[in-house]
């Protein structure tokens, strides 16, 4: 990694309406993790199990916005992170969860809880502990300003490595053929 040697950059990551596939792909950079960890330290992240988000240089978010909690977390990341990166198809365009946008939420909830058998005794769960689903699944950039995008489902380890290199080096990520993939 070629970046200015100095204080380690604080990086937080999270998965919203995602599958953790992007996080798995991040781990797939394998031994390059050792290089990376020389430059950054993780704050809140599934990798650290730190629950509280502190002030960070970079936030990396996987997954789209499917419910109120996703929005709260995203806003918290936007407040705390200087640079926000959307990673993976779901964060960028809603991805698989957004396939439900073709149907109304009412229809979906009815189908799942009223029509189908065996769930919640035919009632739609209304516990205040549960986050309410949004009318439509949204991409991150539709709700907060996003600084960089790393597409892919998931992006390959090489793609992530190249994009992070560019971003840490203060450059607009340029992936090029083979690394820029939407699938």
């Amino acid at each position: 990694m070629n970046t200015v040697i100095g204080k380690k950059l604080k990086v937080a990551t999270t998965s919203l309406a995602g599958c953790f596939g992007c996080h798995m792909s991040l781990l797939d950079i394998d031994e390059r993790l050792f290089d990376l960890i020389e430059l950054i330290e993780f704050d809140r992240s599934p990798l650290t199990d730190i629950k509280e988000l502190g002030s960070c240089d970079i936030g990396i978010i996987e997954g789209g916005l499917c419910n109120a909690e996703n929005v709260h977390v995203l806003r918290e990341f936007r407040r705390q992170c200087k640079i926000l990166i959307a990673i993976g198809a779901c964060a960028i365009n809603g991805g698989l969860p957004a396939q439900r946008n073709q149907l109304s939420l009412a229809l979906i909830l009815q189908e799942v809880y009223h029509t189908s058998v065996g769930l919640a005794n035919g009632l739609i769960p209304n516990d205040p502990e549960l986050p309410l689903p949004l009318a439509k699944v949204r991409a991150l950039h539709e709700v907060v300003n996003i600084d960089y995008f790393i597409p892919g489902c998931p992006p390959s380890a090489d793609t992530i490595w190249k994009a992070l290199n560019d971003i840490l080096g203060g450059r607009e990520p340029e992936l090029g053929h083979g690394l820029i993939q939407y699938d």
């Binding site: 991409a139 790393i150 699938d183």
Partner: peptide, 26 residues
């Protein structure tokens, strides 16, 4: 356009053109 589930992914001119133009998001 949900590329991960599309059978044409990799054989799609829209996708390939977007790659060529460096489209990182919509």
């Amino acid at each position: 356009h949900f590329c991960p589930s599309c059978e044409k992914s990799g054989d799609c001119k829209l996708q390939a053109t977007a790659y060529e133009l460096g489209m990182m998001s919509a």
